[in-house]
Computed example of a mutant assay.
Amino acid sequence: MLFLFKEFSMIQSMTGFGKASGTFSNKKITIEIRSLNSKNLDVFVRMPTVYKEKEIELRKYLGDQLDRGKIECNFVIESHGEEKSYSINKELAGRYYAEIVDLAGFLELNTDDVLNTILKMPDIIVSDVDEVNEEEWTFIMKLVKEAVDHHKNFRIHEGEALHQEFKTRIENIKAAFAQIPQYEKERIEDIKNRIESNLEEFVGGAKVDKNRFEQELIYYIEKIDIAEEKQRLAKHLDYFLEIMDQPISQGKKLGFISQEIGREINTLGSKSYHSEMQKLVVDMKDELEKIKEQVLNTL
Rank of each mutant, 00 (worst) to 15 (best):
E131M: 09
N193R: 10
M121N: 04
F177Q: 06
S197H: 05
T168K: 13
N116L: 00
P122R: 10
Y97C: 02
A206T: 03
D128R: 12
E136S: 05
D190A: 06
R169E: 13
I118P: 08
E214R: 05
I173R: 09
E136G: 02
K192C: 01
L199S: 10
L109N: 06
F166M: 10
K192H: 07
Y219M: 15
N116Q: 01
L199V: 12
I100M: 12
K174F: 13
D113S: 03
K174D: 15
F154K: 13
E146R: 08
E136W: 05
V126K: 13
V126W: 08
L109S: 05
V203C: 02
E200N: 14
E214M: 04
K174I: 14
A98K: 14
E108N: 12
D123C: 05
E196I: 06
A175M: 10
K142L: 02
G105H: 15
F177K: 06
F106Q: 09
D149F: 09
F106T: 06
H157N: 15
N193T: 14
H151S: 04
K210R: 15
E160G: 13
E136Y: 01
E196W: 01
I170H: 09
F166Y: 12
I156P: 09
R194T: 07
K167T: 13
T111S: 10
A175T: 10
R187C: 11
Y183V: 07
K210V: 09
G159M: 13
A178R: 11
D149W: 04
A161N: 14
L107H: 03
E160V: 14
N110V: 08
G205A: 12
I125D: 00
A104M: 03
D102K: 14
Q179H: 10
D123V: 04
F213N: 11
M121S: 10
I180Y: 09
E216K: 02
I180R: 08
N133R: 01
E165G: 02
E201C: 00
L119C: 00
Y97K: 11
G204D: 02
L143H: 07
I125T: 08
V101G: 03
V208N: 03
E184Q: 07
Q179G: 11
M121I: 04
D130T: 04
P181G: 13
I191R: 00
E160T: 10
V114A: 02
R95A: 04
K207F: 04
K152Q: 14
A178C: 07
I173V: 13
T117N: 04
T117P: 02
H151N: 07
L199D: 12
N153E: 11
L109G: 01
V101F: 05
A93H: 09
A175L: 12
V148N: 02
G205Q: 07
D113C: 00
T111Y: 00
I140R: 02
F166I: 02
T111L: 00
P181D: 12
N153Q: 10
T168C: 03
H150A: 06
Y97R: 14
L115G: 00
Q164N: 12
L143N: 03
A104I: 03
F177E: 04
K142M: 03
D112N: 14
F106S: 06
Q179D: 14
I140A: 02
I118K: 04
V101N: 06
R187T: 08
A176S: 15
L199P: 12
R155Y: 02
E136F: 03
Y97T: 05
